[in-house]
Computed example of a mutant assay.
Amino acid sequence: MITAAAELIGERGWSAVSTRTLAERAGVGPGLVHYHFASLQALRIEAAAQMMSAVAEGATARLETAADAEEGLALIIRDLDRFSGDDPMSRLFIEAYLASTRDEELRRAISGVLELFRSRLTAWLATAGVEAPEETARVLGAALDGVMLHRALDPGLTSGVVEPMLRRLLAPTPVSDRTDGHEEQRQGDR
């Protein structure tokens, strides 16, 4: 039922997944849907969270094979190329994000997936010696999500375009380039 719900969300949209269509797709009686889940919404949330977790886990698993931060970034960004923006998984992400703006339980489930992804990314970035690993993981995670969501509007947003730009996030900042954020403003005020 989880797989059937995820497929239907990606094909038809969040609210188009009814008990009847889900039961037909899963090859079960409608009563079985409510026997295993408190509500249809609970099933949709579980399906979205599981599929999103699988994508996040797959991406972070690739990092373990990377020799350094640059290679890891390349692997995780290239993995996004399998999502065209018009595929069922991309649409599931889009539908779930949109629905989460109106559903606190779904928002918490997606936030849990993001938290797990960021914590794994943070640990890997720290091991790779990247400055400010937690902050970098937050920005990198948001950028990767954005790339996946934007592909529906801009299919040319591939790893070849994105990777060189995001690589800058992992580049060390020379000590001479670091400021407290106020130096440039003070000079501009003179």
Rank of each mutant, 00 (worst) to 15 (best):
S90L: 06
E104A: 13
L80Y: 09
H34D: 03
A61W: 01
S159K: 13
A16E: 11
A128W: 07
T60G: 10
T173M: 15
S176E: 15
G188F: 00
G112D: 05
E57K: 13
W124T: 06
G141E: 00
G156S: 14
R190V: 02
S159R: 12
T101N: 03
R62P: 04
I94T: 10
L116H: 15
E57I: 05
A142R: 08
A69R: 13
A69C: 12
D154C: 12
E163M: 09
R167G: 07
E24L: 14
I45T: 12
D103G: 13
A47F: 10
S15Q: 02
P172N: 13
P133M: 12
L125G: 08
A109R: 01
V147C: 06
L40H: 02
S18A: 08
L98R: 14
E131M: 14
A66T: 02
G13Y: 01
E134C: 06
L149P: 05
S176H: 13
E163W: 11
Q187D: 04
L73D: 07
E163S: 09
R190H: 08
L32Q: 12
T21A: 13
M148V: 10
A99N: 08
R44F: 00
R190P: 01
D87E: 05
R20M: 09
H36P: 03
M52D: 07
V113E: 07
E57G: 14
Q50E: 15
H150Y: 03
T3P: 00
L75C: 11
A56T: 04
E104V: 12
V161T: 13
G72S: 09
S15Y: 01
E105T: 13
E71N: 02
M148Q: 00
L40W: 02
G85Y: 10
G72R: 11
R178T: 01
R44L: 08
L121M: 15
A38D: 12
G31P: 12
